[in-house]
Nucleic acid binder design. Sequence first.
DNA 1: AGCACCGTTGTGAGCGTTCACAACGCAAAA
DNA 2: TTTTGCGTTGTGAACGCTCACAACGGTGCT
Lengths: 365, 365
Amino acid sequence: MCKGVPGGIDVGRRRQSVTIKHVEADSGVSLQTVSRVINDEPNVRPEMKRRVQASIDKLGYVPSIAAQRMSGSKSYLILALNDRERTIEAWKAREGSDWVDQMLLGGMLKCAEYGYRLIFELVDTHADNIERELNAAIAALQPDGVILTPPHSDNALITGLLEKRRIAFARIGSRAEGGAISLTMGDSRMAGVATRHLVAKGHRRIGFIAGPREYAVSDRRKTGWLEAMAEAGLDTDLCERGDFSYASGEEAAHRLLSQASPPTAIIASNDQMALATMAVARSMELTVPQDLSLVSFDNSPVVRFVQPPLTAIDQPVADTVGAAVELLILSNRGEDLPPMPVVIEGSLIERDSVADLTQAGSSGV
Amino acid sequence: MCKGVPGGIDVGRRRQSVTIKHVEADSGVSLQTVSRVINDEPNVRPEMKRRVQASIDKLGYVPSIAAQRMSGSKSYLILALNDRERTIEAWKAREGSDWVDQMLLGGMLKCAEYGYRLIFELVDTHADNIERELNAAIAALQPDGVILTPPHSDNALITGLLEKRRIAFARIGSRAEGGAISLTMGDSRMAGVATRHLVAKGHRRIGFIAGPREYAVSDRRKTGWLEAMAEAGLDTDLCERGDFSYASGEEAAHRLLSQASPPTAIIASNDQMALATMAVARSMELTVPQDLSLVSFDNSPVVRFVQPPLTAIDQPVADTVGAAVELLILSNRGEDLPPMPVVIEGSLIERDSVADLTQAGSSGV
DNA sequence: AGCACCGTTGTGAGCGTTCACAACGCAAAA
DNA sequence: TTTTGCGTTGTGAACGCTCACAACGGTGCT
């Protein structure tokens, strides 16, 4: 009758307290049927289902992921792969960007909706380590899907490995447009939105601080600016390139602002470079926004608390990662996916760093 | 000879690509010996060890956590348990606190050193959900250790459940001082350091904005201020309580600053309330630090970027979580632990929000 | 020489779950 | 009535690994 169901308290070896066998014994149906109920499979009589479910609830049974994974089912794990060097650097610098938070929470919450779990994982930048570390993570965890963030999104070694293992992956902010799951945040369009916003406020000399070439988003943002400027018939000579760091932002801002005919507004490709630009402006006795308007990309928490609060393009990191999770789960189920890339668009958050030149004369405070 | 080692490519069911059996076949030793090498167990001849290791490296073998966990070994997983409501709220507010980052990275990096993995997990605040969710997480993941953050650190339901299951846990910022693994950040002492810093700069009327009673740290910080003030023979009438939110900081600051004999300096129990205090001061035409000095707790990224940058007590969240991880692993190995609570002390980061009253007269810019 | 002992290696079982497949029962079709 | 078929349930094996225990060989003791 009682088919080897553990009797007393678990001693020594720490084992699962209540297993599928307990449920089997309690509900009086076979192991397999219990499994069917757990996995919500078809062809189970409603009454059986009810009975099993009652036992599960009563005993507080939760299936062991380890055992599930062992017998070839899903692992219900999704890996968020990040570049170790870059992540640790950003973390140590504590410059107020919160994309780790956004990724983690945005991904976790969406995972939770589907009964999945997100695991945040760091992988090295160097080619030989990538293969070893990625293999280790995959073998150890056996995830059902992997989310790739820049610069890993465009790493052929990684995507190759994943393809060989037939693990679904989603790339965020990747260069490649077609093929597998791919998401972007509409960078080019949003750069256009920022530019047109400034044009509408009467700005004509609009400078741009681009990001480093390694990131696909850098060029996309620049393109958006270029196109919007051309559309408005304006000069695109005021462009400098930084590397997303504060220091590089200072240099770029300095070059831009010491021109003979300096910009009245600058769009920076991220918050740090915008903050740096603001500091340079201050050191040159220029007031933001009266003497220089500023729009930045990312909209990390810091930009709300500086004086003046910066107008910024919000990057919907959480939504994007959430969407990636959803696509991965869909793809695992074999359902069809929307055309790629999926774009989750940001929005322009207006604050106080842009002056309205069309209302000239009312300059003072 | 080739004992059932999978021959071709894995078809259909996605199985582990290279298993312990491949290593067994390749190295010519028994399965069990390979296992011994993997787990670094004693009583293996160096030559065997070398041979097995060579095969492992050659084949790129990595043990499957799932299988390891199945057969009763460690899971090499540590759970970081956070309050769902509070975490999501902080995340959505985007007020620039980076403790999620700090916890995650600090914990992950320390875990990586020991071959462990950190999993960030959210658990509800409500009693009935706690039990269900915690049980689910434990049954699914079977972690080797759990890190409890406030307010979960003092939740008897959680600690009880964990004890019953014999899972090691570490509490951070808990009220309870003895017993199991417990860590604090020396809040009381650091509040004293902040207070004495202000006293040394010539301040006599020093206000304090406390945190909510639900958090053990609130009272500890207040105690530190109280003691340091008493030590300096100063009045402790300037104390208000907030709840760590910006809004509550505004109210508290308002009450403090509209006194007949207002403070020349205020210590806020977190950054948000300090930021709020700064805004209130500005609205009352008080300049920081000339008219009001400010010291805050936490030292989150934002406080570096406001004008003036705030002097703050840095909370070593990453180090503390790292230490918790280490203690958990030690405890799992059955090694002895240091006396509890372990305290990881913060430090006073001096920036520009404190005026030196001893150099009176040189007030202007 | 005989014995106990320890370091080293191998063997069989079992962990909790799902897979493939077999077996059952009942309704519709021949 | 017999056949075909499908919905439903159960059975045995397998997943990758570690546990307890057995077996082997050598050393040191009596």
